[in-house]
């Protein structure tokens, strides 16, 4: 019984993924609608719908889908390969990349905390929202250190990634930015793993810059954020 349940919940993920990719291919839409029909939008909606219909709570589903979380961690390690293959692209770009990284990574934190503060969120929420632009494992580690709510942080991080991955390409279009290096790096900085997956879809070069952005933002946030929080809470 227990095993059957676990299998069904794992299968639900697989079915949702396949349905979502099929839907994307079947509906030959371009541009903006294309972004909203993304497997990362349709897939989770399907799974959420399934869970609500059957009355399974998310914790159970999460436990059943441990294999996918495990594979996700492994897949993040696999990102080193495209980074290595595209490394020659970064040569001589250290300065512009650093400037963009410093600005965007800090702006992401400051603006999110600032808006939350204006909206009247409490300290706990502020601490949970601060590491939003790093990958989930890193964000959880950071939130733990600075004392945020872990489950809240996980949700916020994912939400940030989904928003960035959906609206990022639309915004680049509106701003008429065609350089894959810019698209990738910004997607990696703001939308971490999910944005990187989206960037890899655009091109390999774009993906490599996203991976660089993801790693660098994570490291920068992990190094700096705890001290900022310590100072501001004093």
């Amino acid at each position: 019984m227990e095993i059957a349940n676990l299998t069904i919940m794992c299968l639900a993920t697989l079915v949702a993924y396949n349905l979502a990719t099929w839907l994307l291919r079947a509906s030959k839409v371009r541009s903006i609608a294309h972004s909203f029909l993304h497997p990362l939008v349709i897939g989770p909606i399907l799974v959420a719908g399934f869970l609500m219909l059957t009355g399974i709570d998310y914790q159970q589903y999460q436990v059943a889908n441990k294999p996918f979380f495990l594979l996700l961690d492994t897949a993040i390690v696999a990102l080193a390969i495209p980074l290595y293959q595209q490394f020659y692209n970064f040569k001589g770009l250290v300065k512009p990349l650093l400037i963009t990284l410093m600005f965007s990574a800090s702006f992401a934190i400051i603006s999110a905390v600032g808006f939350a503060l204006i909206m009247g969120a409490d300290t706990n929420s502020l601490l949970s929202i601060a590491p939003k632009s790093t990958t989930t494992p890193m964000a959880l580690r950071i939130a733990e250190k600075i004392g945020g709510d872990l489950s809240m942080t996980a949700g916020i991080v994912v939400l940030t990634g989904v928003i960035g991955a959906i609206f990022g390409p639309i915004l680049f279009n509106k701003l008429s930015i065609q350089d894959d290096r810019i698209k990738g790096f910004i997607l990696g900085i703001t939308a971490h793993g999910i944005g990187t997956a989206r960037a890899l879809e655009i091109s390999r070069k774009c993906g490599a810059f996203a991976i660089l952005g993801l790693g660098a933002t994570g490291a920068l946030t992990a190094l700096i954020l705890p001290y900022i929080v310590l100072l501001s809470l004093r």
Binding site: T13, F69, L71, I194
Partner: peptide, 8 residues
Amino acid sequence: FLIPACTG
């Protein structure tokens, strides 16, 4: 692999 996390 991202779908279960996103469902959260």
